[in-house]
Design a protein around this nucleic acid. Structure first.
Lengths: 201, 201
DNA sequence: GGGTATACTTAACACTGTTAAGTAGAAGCG
DNA sequence: CGCTTCTACTTAACAGTGTTAAGTATACCC
């Protein structure tokens, strides 16, 4: 019964084609400026074919964001589980977070800069890819606390504050790219260092 | 020649009616979910009438955001020019910034969480209302530096870092409202205090 | 009162995401 | 082989969007 398998393979390969085309378009033109018809034209199928593989436009974008954010999660895991001072690891993790956001601004925008929870059902589903990355950061914070590096703060507060810090600079650099920022390096260092120092106090 | 004046008055009053209707709708339903036809229906005019007073939908929203952010600017001016420790003033200013964003999430979203500068011409125009508020904060930072409170940091770096800090928590609370945040109070205090402490070090 | 400017509306365009209905062809089965 | 059924896909259409061009009634000016 290899027939069904071949069919599945074909179906999957078209799904991948759609994802590839959409990823390109979303990254270069932004979610709102990409139409289903544009994606369809790029893969040389009719627009409705996409709906055989994805529920709607948002679902298509979500799939792509999940892929991309999985890469961030893996990178963060590697960084935060590396040996050495946990605070130093955390610092490197936060930097990696910002770098990632700036490397995939469109994905970051859709995942973290767009309101997500009108529907209280899919709260967990909606930003799940992004929230997984956060939970890894949180684990890094927990390591620091366990090592006695952050007295007087709890895991939740500290990790949320550090997330908001990294998100603040990431999202502002994305939304106001042509603002006369000081050196990105300097800014990130100042923020991350100050915040980590605040946790350590 | 009071005729033209009366006409102007009438024209202005319709403009105000449009602004009032649109402000309501934008605040309650969000920019994307408000259509020109909805605004028109609310003021009981035809949709095209709006275009006699505003260039397009974005222009309408921009006018409203400018109004709203002007109120923030005035509030920040009052806070930052009040007597006492400039660092304490700055802290209160940052808190006011976050509170403002949470009070007008839709306005904040459009002004600060949406990319603005595809067109390099209207960089200054686009987020002008919001950027004015930033420049007032920057002045507060300058006061702190002048008072010798922030050694080892320059005005630009410090104010940008503090802006990003306030923006980080504001925008995350807006975009992920149903995330299990720790107490808002606690979070803002932790972030602002840590960052200010970092500047003071 | 006749001509002109003003304020507004109606109709339409080009486009969007999405769905319902239709079609060619392969698969399954006698 | 021949018939039916299922699968992958397309065509046509819907309801809606922001926006513009063309038309209309009314108030103003002389």
């Amino acid at each position: 019964m290899g027939v069904k398998e071949r069919r599945d393979r074909q179906k999957n390969s078209l799904r991948k084609e759609i994802l590839d085309a959409a990823r390109d378009l979303f990254a270069s033109q932004g979610y709102e400026n990409v139409t289903m018809r544009k994606v369809a034209e790029k893969i040389e199928y009719s627009p409705t074919t996409i709906y055989l593989h994805f529920q709607d436009k948002a679902d298509l974008m979500r799939s792509i964001c999940e892929e991309t954010f999985d890469r961030l999660s893996r990178k963060l895991e590697k960084i935060l589980q590396s040996p050495g001072d946990p605070v130093e690891c955390l610092k490197r993790g936060l930097r990696a977070y910002v770098d990632f956001g700036l490397e995939y601004p469109q994905h970051y925008r859709v995942t973290f800069m767009t309101p997500h929870d009108v529907d209280p059902d899919d709260v967990l589903v909606a930003g799940s890819a992004g929230l997984k990355a956060f939970s890894i950061l949180q684990q890094g914070v927990a390591d620091c606390i366990r090592a006695g590096k952050f007295p007087n703060v709890d895991v939740a507060s500290a990790s949320q504050a550090l997330w908001a810090t990294a998100h603040g600079i990431t999202s502002l650099l994305i939304s106001h790219a042509s603002f006369p920022w000081v050196s990105r390096e300097k800014l990130i260092n100042l923020m991350v260092d100050s915040m980590l120092q605040g946790m350590a106090a």
